[in-house]
């Protein structure tokens, strides 16, 4: 590992966090504007994170510390596998299977850390998050299976490169039902309404975050920021044709996030069993139809 690569990794970590936090601030602004409010400034999330790190914090045991660090590390590691521009990835390879597996480390670390705090609300939140994971992973995996079966490669940068040459080549055109399914699953993935069972402030007191105060909450914010980057990046690379420059990439990510925030603003929350049922019935059936059409009838592939 050369020193340049290490610098790259550190620089990219900083980039992910800055992009994620900016998105979070903009998301709050979007919600506010849709509700006819002025809303906080776009840099509000940075203020929140800095404030969180300036506070004291209480740790219940070392599992809690390690769990959150593991979650952050897992998500940052996932982000290294994300192709940013022209198929370039900090980690060198971009296998989509690796990405999907590494992403679970983030959730498991979070689950480990907050369950160690011993608060029942946190445990409920984590169990909800894992239950919801069953809901969205299956449709998402089916769509990815369809793409891999057409392209013959599981590399995310290959998928992104294969869409080069204009909007007509984007997977959003070639896999319309798959995009619909992925959009529904994406909403559940980033935990916005109608699938925000995991946080649910009025119900289970913000779920996993219930015992996190001060610096732990700051880490949770960073976690969410990196998670946003990874998941929007996944959508951009899978459906929106990847990007040739980093600012194009961030712009497309923002479009994905904007759509999600608008849906978030106008929807209410499902109950947990309704949410999973909805994901399986709608996202799952769209994805299955897409998979069958692609694999056996060869309609949407070129």
């Amino acid at each position: 590992m050369s020193s340049k690569m290490i610098l790259d990794l550190f620089g990219m970590t900083f980039f992910y966090i800055v992009v994620g936090l900016t998105f979070m601030g903009l998301g709050r602004k979007i919600t506010a504007r849709l509700q006819r409010r002025v809303g906080p400034p776009w840099y509000q999330s940075f203020l929140d994170v800095f404030k969180c790190f300036s506070k004291t914090s209480i740790s219940h045991n070392y599992i809690m510390d390690l769990g959150l660090i593991m979650a952050l590390a897992g998500l940052i590691a996932t982000a290294y596998f994300m192709p940013v521009a022209k198929g370039w990835t900090p980690a060198g390879s971009s296998s989509i299977v690796v990405i999907l597996y590494l992403m679970t480390i983030g959730y498991l670390g979070m689950a480990m850390g907050v369950s160690a705090s011993g608060n029942p609300n946190a445990t409920i939140g984590i169990s909800r998050a894992l239950a919801l994971m069953f809901g969205y992973e299956i449709p998402f995996a089916m769509i990815i299976l369809a793409m891999i079966s057409v392209l013959g490669s599981s590399s995310l940068s290959d998928i992104a490169m294969s869409q080069a040459g204009g909007i007509q080549n984007w997977n959003i055109i070639r896999f319309p039902l798959g995009f619909l399914a992925a959009e529904i699953a994406f909403q559940a993935m980033i935990g916005e309404k109608p699938y925000d069972h995991m946080i649910a402030p009025a119900e289970i007191a913000s779920g996993p975050m219930v015992e996190l105060g001060g610096k732990f909450l700051g880490i949770a914010f960073l976690l969410h920021a990196v998670q946003l980057f990874v998941e929007t990046g996944l959508m951009v690379n899978l459906f929106l044709g990847g990007a040739s420059t980093w600012y194009e990439f961030v712009g497309k990510q923002f479009v994905v996030y904007f759509t999600s925030m608008v849906i978030n603003t106008v929807f209410a929350r499902y109950r947990i069993e309704q949410g999973i049922k909805h994901l399986w019935v709608w996202a799952g059936s769209f994805a299955a139809i897409q998979l069958v059409l692609t694999r056996y009838f060869d309609i949407f592939s070129r």
Binding site: P40, D48, P201, A205, M209, L212, G213
Partner: peptide
């Protein structure tokens, strides 16, 4: 002004 509701005393 950045003032918002939070769910628990810890936060």
């Amino acid at each position: 002004f950045g003032i918002g509701p939070m769910a628990t005393p810890r936060q």
